[in-house]
Design a protein around this nucleic acid. Structure first.
Lengths: 125, 125
DNA sequence: ACAAGAAACAGTAACGATTCCTATTATTGA
DNA sequence: TCAATAATAGGAATCGTTACTGTTTCTTGT
């Protein structure tokens, strides 16, 4: 894969992930993209999601349910998963310092998943 | 499933997860348990893992690779995944305070996944 | 503009982790 | 010891994801 070529489908995917705070799965993105790119295939969605993740243009989130979710916001932030409704929402925090003792690896990124019950579900209980 | 019955297999599973700091997958646990419970089935491993997680006796970890990993240590702590060797190691931290603004949900647990290169792999590079 | 080479594609088959199903076995309380 | 039923073994089914194949599209040099 020497030279990366431009692709309409990848543009549409990146565009579909911009300016939204939900965290769609590959299948959800596939369904949405079919409206603008009717012939797009699920394999193309997966391949381009992987390319964009590798490129640091989007984030892949795991945990909560069994599938991966994708985030167009690459600013470091955490996520909260409601085990009641399954919704995945953003949690931002500033001035966050962490200290490790006896840790000599190199941390390139971290991802925090909070689990519990969200605002709406508490009200609905 | 009104009354929970005792089971040799579930005991063996819980025992297999005690006092270890690696984070085996269901398949790994299955292979190990076959030595003490030769007739155990993979379905039994999965069902009991789910029961133990639901019961708060073990933790289910996701992220890193595509499978779930299980942790017998339920003391809150984070994990570090080396994307080079795939190893999942514990990261403990004390006096850890987090402040949330405008967050009204109820957090019952959180899980942090750090990604990067571990000690050993840095040396091996 | 054009043609060649390669990346990306659509469509579909294959894969692997997990869940579900069914007949059988083990645990429990009487 | 017996009846009720939770739990099991074994295997089929499911589902998210990846791999494969022949075709299309993008890029680059002419």
């Amino acid at each position: 894969m020497a030279v990366r070529k431009h692709s309409r489908q990848r543009d549409a995917l990146l565009n579909a992930l911009a300016d939204r705070t939900d965290h769609p799965s590959a299948e959800t993105l596939y369904q949405e993209l079919r409206e603008v790119e009717p012939k797009i295939s699920l394999g193309t969605v997966y391949r381009n999601l992987a390319l964009l993740v590798e490129n640091g243009e989007i984030l892949k989130l795991t945990g909560g349910d069994d599938k991966s979710h994708y985030d167009g916001n690459i600013k470091p932030h955490d996520h909260f998963w409601c085990r009641s409704c399954g919704k995945l929402t953003d949690i931002f925090h500033e001035d966050f310092e962490m200290t490790f003792k006896n840790f000599n690896g190199r941390i390139e990124s971290h991802q925090t998943l909070y689990t519990g019950i969200c605002d709406e579900c508490i009200k609905a209980e």
